[in-house]
Amino acid sequence: MTGYAALDRPGRRWELRSVNARGLDVRLKLPEAVPGLEPLAREMLTSQVARGNVTLTLRINSAGGGVPQLNAGSLPAALDAVAEVQATAEARGLALGPVSATDILALRGLWEVGETAPDLTPETCRSDLSELLTAFDADRAREGGALARVLGEHVDEIERLTRAATDLAPERSAHLSAALTAALDRIAAADVDQARLAQEIAMLAVKGDVTEELDRLGVHVSAARDLLTAEGPVGRRLDFLTQEFNREANTLCSKAQMSALTAIGMDLKTVIDRLREQVQNVE
């Protein structure tokens, strides 16, 4: 599930964001100023987030405590460059003014600001992360509420179409009976084993019965509603349930033998596909 939260504190800024994913992938962009920060952050994140690509970033603000330091590794190279410029100028008869220490220290690249944060202890980080996760959960809860309404509408539509298919039962029975009678009339004059014919008719009747598929669709609707009101992560279970919905809709279409029921089955498949797409956003 997508979510975003930020927390600003003197000398530092935390950002936590997530995008949809089938599993959980935690990515940490943290400075090395605090020993043990990475395992602490990973533990706190995985205890509250079950699904998504989650990125936690901590930026140390140099203006909030970082002290500029002379880069000793760059100083010899800077002095060599100054000497080379002076030597080249002299070789060409050019007179350069004296170079002072201040001139050299003003060169770019000689100073660096370390990511030091003397007040950023593990206890401070835990407190920051706890507040950040609270805001993060609140943001995801707002999205989750809107998403739950959308999912509920899809489940309602599946229930409506299932009832419509059930209501077609008398009409479908008459349709299949008429089709079977016409088929029997065509073979009445043929020399057919009546016992075998009766057996085949019974098998066709069993294979064409869609009662079980409609009953299971009803059960899945109830299960989906229970999951939408359940506490905790339900995304994986909803994902599995959409597969069951789709299986029953496919079987219903294959058994339909009636254009009206086939149309309902196709509408069911469309709604179920929309439900499946939205379920990918659920933790």
Rank of each mutant, 00 (worst) to 15 (best):
L180S: 07
T262C: 12
L70Y: 09
P233H: 00
L151F: 15
R22Y: 03
R108K: 07
R274T: 02
L228K: 14
E43M: 09
A78V: 12
A249T: 03
A41P: 02
R172S: 09
G23M: 00
E43Y: 08
T229E: 12
E143L: 07
N53P: 00
L79I: 15
L133R: 11
R17A: 15
P31D: 05
N20V: 03
I264F: 10
V234R: 13
A81S: 14
P68A: 04
R186I: 04
A5I: 03
G36Y: 06
C253P: 05
G109V: 06
S130V: 07
A95Y: 06
P170Q: 00
A87L: 05
R236N: 08
H175G: 00
L132R: 11
E32R: 15
V219E: 03
D137W: 03
F136I: 03
R17S: 10
H220G: 03
L96D: 01
L168D: 05
A6G: 15
G265L: 06
N246S: 10
A5T: 01
V113D: 00
L16W: 04
H220E: 01
R225Q: 04
A148G: 08
R236W: 04
L176D: 04
E32T: 12
E123H: 14
L151C: 07
P68M: 02
V234Y: 11
T251G: 08
E213Y: 01
P170G: 00
A63T: 04
A81H: 05
Q48L: 09
V49T: 14
D137Y: 03
R163H: 08
A164K: 05
V99L: 05
T166L: 03
I104N: 02
P122V: 12
D167L: 11
L70Q: 02
A189L: 08
D191T: 11
D215H: 09
A165F: 02
D119F: 08
E90F: 03
C253N: 12
A174E: 14
N246A: 07
S254G: 12
A148P: 00
L58N: 05
G265S: 04
L217Y: 06
D156H: 02
D215N: 05
G66R: 01
A95H: 12
D167I: 00
A41L: 06
I187P: 09
T88A: 15
R247A: 00
V221E: 01
L252W: 03
V49P: 10
R22T: 06
P31Y: 12
A81K: 05
I201T: 03
D267P: 02
R59P: 06
G52N: 09
D215W: 01
P39D: 04
L70F: 01
E153W: 06
V26N: 08
R108D: 11
M266H: 10
R276K: 15
A101R: 14
L261S: 11
T116D: 09
C253T: 10
A249L: 01
G114E: 08
S100A: 09
S222N: 10
A33I: 07
S74E: 09
A5D: 05
E131C: 05
P76C: 11
A164L: 01
A77I: 02
H220W: 09
L151Y: 14
E231F: 07
K269T: 02
V19D: 02
A188G: 07
G23S: 09
A106G: 12
R9K: 08
L56P: 10
T242C: 14
L40T: 07
R196I: 01
T134S: 11
L147R: 14
Y4N: 11
D226Y: 02
V155C: 02
A41S: 11
L24K: 10
E112L: 08
E112A: 13
A188C: 07
Q278T: 00
